[in-house]
């Protein structure tokens, strides 16, 4: 019962993951901005890594590989989970760099400061 449930969950998550990869691939085809494409690349690779995790997990459960080969059959799963986290980190760094490039809040604050300095001058003119 538990094994069947794990296989069903594995197949469903695989289908969701494949759809996610297709969507991100289609998005990257329409976009032209290099930093955004870089972020999408990491999202895509992290989803792919999760798919591989789900795929291996499903295959392992389906063919009862753990019973045949022992605990070593679980090693690829740990590898893919670790890889996913690394790719998440790289994606987070990419979006952080994007925020540094496209974030204008500091400039907005400087402008607010400059406008408040100019206000008394304008009043004097009037």
């Amino acid at each position: 019962m538990t094994e069947n449930f794990e296989i069903i969950i594995g197949v469903v998550t695989l289908a969701i993951g494949i759809n996610a990869v297709i969507f991100t691939h289609l998005a990257s085809k329409k976009l032209s901005n290099p930093p955004l494409l870089n972020y999408i690349k990491f999202v895509n690779w992290s989803i792919t890594s999760l798919i591989l995790f789900s795929l291996w997990h499903t295959v392992r459960e389906l063919f009862e590989l753990k019973d045949i080969y022992g605990a070593i059959a679980e090693v690829p799963e740990y590898f893919f989970v670790a890889l996913t986290y690394v790719l998440f980190l790289l994606g987070a760094v990419a979006i952080f760099k994007m925020s540094e490039t496209y974030g204008f809040k500091d400039m907005g604050e400087k402008i607010a400061e400059s406008l408040s300095k100019d206000k008394p001058k304008n009043k004097k003119r009037k």
Binding site: N33, G103, F104, K105
Partner: peptide, 29 residues
């Protein structure tokens, strides 16, 4: 990006231009 300018460097990067404009306009006080 410098103190008061964002250099996109590619006039064909319309996505970058759109993102930059959106963020810049919204940051104005």
């Amino acid at each position: 990006k410098t103190a008061d300018c964002l250099f996109i460097g590619m006039p064909n990067d319309l996505t970058g231009l759109s993102v930059a404009m959106n963020e810049a306009v919204k940051s104005l006080p």
